[in-house]
Amino acid sequence: MSHLSTKHLIGIKDITKSDIELILQTASTFKEVINRPIKKVPTLRDLTIANLFFENSTRTRTSFELAQKRLSADIVNFTSSSSSVKKGETLLDTVNNILAMKVDMVVMRHPSPGAPNFLANHIEANILNAGDGTHEHPTQALLDAYSMQEKIGDLKGKNILIIGDIMHSRVALSNIYCLTKLGANVKLCGPPTLIPKYITELGVTIEYNIQKALEWCDVANVLRIQLERQNIKLFPSIREYALYFGVNKKRLESLNKPIVIMHPGPINRGVELTSDVADSEHSIILDQVENGVAVRMACMYLLAGKA
């Protein structure tokens, strides 16, 4: 298997296990590239990629941009706050205008779930979803899986815990699809109001007691509380959340084995994760950021080869 089964990467739900394995395997060769003295390869030098960010992002946008530069692609950056979207232009018009300038691939982040699917039905270029509302964030799930594999080896049969705001998190959904496809056991933990009722249909289990959940897992992926996506109050206070679901040193020290701590960022220090845990030796948060560049290089390289 040396090609992806798809020309767009919109969600982990739509790709196969061998697609995931191919991306992760290719990412490890790119990781070697970005650790060289000269961190650049000429592979995508004849490709133009547009980064369309209709929603704020620092980490993901920088990571994509760096990955594109390392692959020698030409890039066009677009943020909605400084564009004609403010003047009432539709998404399709915006993208068609950019494509008329001969762009081969579109990396898009959009607040509406399904926006990349809509684009994929209307335009020719490869679409890479960099997060669409509360739907999916495939490259984050892939880099999470890559970072886990790097730390604990094959994920088959491993126990992975996802803690926090599952309902509003595209990272959680993509992670669930990715990890279950790779054969890991996935458990969710958080306030009942933030865990969708039927999520167990995806093959995951739920535990509301954080202590029990931490005792069970090999890796804990801690998510951010997404206050910006909540219209109503779903838990009483941030302080209470930190008390019941926050991961702190005391909780980790009471376990009989060390567990790996991950966070997709940005961290609300003192809420879902205390500083002493985020900066501890068991945290691989900064590895996740480094691996993000390699994984995104792999995704764009493989999608470009599919065009």
């Binding site: 490890s28 995508l44 004849d46 470009a304 080869g305 065009a307």
Partner: peptide, 17 residues
């Protein structure tokens, strides 16, 4: 990653270390 036939059909994309 240095090949000049990246976009040719049937090219193996799989990289070795």
């Amino acid at each position: 990653f240095y090949r000049d036939d990246f976009k040719s059909k049937g090219l193996q994309l799989e990289a070795k270390t």
